[in-house]
């Protein structure tokens, strides 16, 4: 199997805090990788390196489809097809729905002039399809501040969906969602698999991760504690081993 993404010897230090230490991590073609780990393990930091938001410490290497990524930035990540649903949702509360959908990569015509008409039309389409906002209460002009948690997550997911990605990263997408909303988020992960794309799925609930992931990677205090293919392990065995990780920092594989 080929890899869409490979990270070799990646470290990231914030001042005194070593958030990641010598991490080797990869995502295969059409593979769903479940990423587990305690609070503060470094999951979001890893994600933000993949999206070009953080620069890793020197010495490591990130490869995209086998080629090294240099001078990496959020814009580059978007351009090559990496989409993220961030843990913090990354919305702008006082702005309209359409401005949130196209945040940071507005559709423009010549010279950077906003194509407002097209962005509104696309948003309206997405509202009726992907987001399912059919109530007249929400329009393309609504500010997202008034949206419920599920609606906000819908916006964040739809945004990732709209810009057809090769690799979708979901950082705790089920956080704070109801059971039915959670199921939709999981279905979204399955739809990525079905469409032949890859994903990294981060969640604290192994009952969410286990059913949709092909491979599970456990991060502990900034290092990879272990990883295994899902079919090597039952859910019960996984649960037991995660307790061990918490105690020993190592995953028996």
């Amino acid at each position: 199997m080929g890899y869409v993404l490979q990270m070799k010897n990646i470290s990231k230090t914030f001042g005194e805090v070593a958030a990641l230490h010598d991490v080797n991590f990869e995502v295969g073609d059409n593979e769903i990788v479940g990423l587990l780990g305690d609070n503060g393990a470094g999951k979001s930091t890893l994600v933000k390196i993949i999206t070009g938001y953080h620069q890793p410490d020197t010495g490591g290497e990130v490869l995209w489809k086998g080629a090294p990524l240099e001078h990496f930035s959020v814009a580059r990540a978007h351009a090559i097809g990496i989409e993220v649903v961030y843990q913090e949702r990354a919305l702008a509360d006082k702005q309209s729905l359409w401005r949130n959908i196209f945040m940071g990569r507005e559709l423009t015509t010549a010279g950077g002039k906003l194509d407002v008409k097209r962005m509104r039309a696309e948003t309206l389409k997405l509202m009726h399809s992907a987001m399912g906002f059919t109530s007249s209460a929400i329009t393309t002009e609504s500010t997202v501040k008034t949206f419920s948690g599920g609606e906000r997550q819908g916006v964040a997911i739809t945004r990732a969906l709209y810009f057809r990605a090769e690799l979708v990263i979901l950082d705790e997408p089920t956080m704070g969602l109801s059971i039915s909303e959670t199921r939709k988020a999981l279905d979204f992960v399955r739809s990525i698999k079905a469409a032949g794309k890859s994903a990294i799925f981060i969640d604290h609930n192994i009952f969410h991760v286990y059913p949709v992931a092909d491979r599970i990677v456990v991060l502990d205090r900034g290092t990879i504690a272990g990883q295994f293919m899902k079919n090597e392990l039952t859910l019960q065995e996984l649960t037991d081993r995660l307790y061990d990780v918490a105690k020993t920092g190592n995953l028996k594989t």
């Binding site: 992907a130 987001m131 399912g132 059919t134 109530s135 609606e151 819908g154 039915s180 988020a185 739809s191």
Partner: peptide, 10 residues
């Protein structure tokens, strides 16, 4: 299918 992540009506 984009309907898979359909949101309920507000």
């Amino acid at each position: 299918s984009s309907d898979e992540i359909a949101r309920p009506l507000s």
